[in-house]
């Protein structure tokens, strides 16, 4: 993608057939979320107890849940929150992580040491525990879960980006730029950042899947999205009580999460292969 023409990138990516399939799936899901108001056959929050736990067909393509709400509509609207929050967490934590990581690696010395020890301390806790602590302080709710996830996630990126930058910082062309009097800012933005970008793209794609899983997990635990807002994790939680009589309540959102996470992983793997090829 970088240092490798777009055509070439595309032709190499297409060779990974599973990844292409996954990409289409992800795009379809994203499109479903964006166009939910037009695509959804019913109001996702309209409760009609008379129509509860209907099978698929007719007015409700995937049936209804225990409150008579359209499952398909809820899934479509849920995409907005599940994927949207994951993208939000990713973009914020990646930006913060990249900035701090580059700064830390580039400056080196005491500041670098201090930052890394700080990271060590936070990373020694499982991220679930840390996020739960933050939610405990801020209170539950979607926004607070997102804030908590950003606060924890960027620490991981600092680590990775720092190590990437450290290896590029020692490359001869960086010293050549320094010798020519290039300013630090220019070296960072023109020489270092473009060289770590391919790895960052791979990293963020691979991590998107796990972020979706995590966010749904918090909703499942009841911290994130509050009912009646549709969200995949929350839908699984609501369906949990009907696991014997109506397992499809859990099946649809669960399947969607599984497929999305697998898709992001496969796409990430393919991207890594393609971009690695360009390096060697």
């Amino acid at each position: 993608m970088i240092g490798l023409g777009f055509d070439k990138f595309l032709s190499r990516f297409v060779k990974h057939k599973a990844a292409v399939l996954c990409l289409f799936f992800v795009l379809a899901v994203i499109a479903g979320g964006i166009f939910a108001p037009w695509l959804a056959p019913n109001d996702p929050n309209k409760i009609e107890l008379k129509l509860k736990l209907l099978g698929p067909g007719g007015q409700f393509p995937l049936g209804t849940d225990h409150l008579g709400r359209c499952i398909l509509s809820r899934l479509l609207y849920g995409t907005r929150i599940s994927l949207g929050s994951a993208f939000l967490v990713m973009s914020f934590s990646l930006t913060i992580g990249t900035a701090v990581g580059i700064f830390s690696a580039y400056r080196g010395g005491r500041i670098d040491n201090l930052l890394m020890r700080l990271c060590d301390i936070f990373l020694s806790f499982p991220s679930l525990v840390l996020v739960l602590v933050i939610i405990g302080v801020l209170g539950s709710g979607m926004v607070n879960v997102i804030i908590g996830m950003i606060l924890v996630q960027w620490l991981w990126y600092v680590r990775i980006i720092r190590s990437l930058v450290l290896s590029i910082k020692e490359r001869t062309f960086v010293s050549a730029a320094k010798v020519a009097g290039t300013s630090d800012m220019k070296i960072i933005f023109r020489h270092i950042l473009p060289n770590v970008l391919p790895q960052l793209i791979v990293l963020s794609t691979l991590d998107l899947g796990s972020l979706i899983l995590h966010f749904s997990g918090y909703s499942f635990l009841g911290f994130g999205v509050q009912p009646p807002t549709p969200e995949w994790g929350a839908m699984i939680e609501e369906g949990r009580r009907f696991i014997r009589s109506a397992p499809e309540l859990m099946f649809y959102p669960g399947m969607l999460i599984t497929l999305i996470v697998i898709s992001f992983n496969l796409i990430g793997d393919a991207l890594r292969d393609v971009l690695d090829e360009s390096v060697t």
Binding site: T172, V179, A180, R190, P194
Partner: peptide
């Protein structure tokens, strides 16, 4: 650096950023 005291490095091939053209290197400096 680069204006009053300039330096030519040892290994020309690794002294250029593979992602930038020669012109970009030049104009940058």
């Amino acid at each position: 650096r680069g204006s009053s005291v300039a330096m030519v490095m040892q290994n020309p091939i690794s002294s250029f950023n593979p992602l930038l053209t020669v012109g970009q290197h030049f104009t940058e400096t």
